[in-house]
């Protein structure tokens, strides 16, 4: 019984990771690709880790806290990585997809740049 549950977790994790990498190829621009990279990969890794944790806990009888810590650190790092990559991509002027509908940041960005120059 427990092996079925563990396998389901690990299979879901593997499928999510595969779909995530598929998404990285399919999306048209940097920002869309980051969506696929930050979301699917996060839940995929977490799902695999829960499966492994359950396996060691129930089948082997070991409580391995490191797997739970891995989940915590993935939670902490994935959004930060996504944030930094998209921010620097925007800063160096990577174009958005031509079918993008709006860009609230473009005008505000000019304002911030002007403020910074007048201050310095």
């Amino acid at each position: 019984m427990i092996e079925v549950i563990v396998s389901i977790f690990i299979l879901i994790g593997a499928a999510l990771s595969a779909l995530g990498s598929f998404g990285i190829m399919r999306f048209p621009d940097v920002y869309g690709r980051l969506h696929a990279a930050t979301k699917s990969a996060t839940l995929g890794v977490i799902s695999i880790m829960i499966g492994v944790f359950l396996y060691f806990l129930v089948v082997q009888g070991d409580f391995v806290g490191k797997f739970l810590l891995t989940i915590l650190f993935v939670f902490l790092t994935a959004p930060v990585a996504g944030f930094m990559i998209s921010k620097s991509a925007y800063n160096v002027g990577v174009k958005m997809w031509d079918r993008s509908t709006q860009d609230d940041l473009a005008e505000d960005m000019k304002k911030y740049r002007k403020n910074r120059e007048s201050n310095s």
């Binding site: 999510l16 999306f27 621009d29 696929a36 079918r99 509908t101 709006q102 860009d103 940041l105």
Partner: peptide
């Protein structure tokens, strides 16, 4: 996200909102 990825046509309107 998976639903968007698996759809044959990319029918999305991305954008940046404040």
């Amino acid at each position: 996200v998976i639903r968007i990825i698996l759809r044959p046509k990319l029918n999305i309107e991305p954008g940046i909102i404040a």
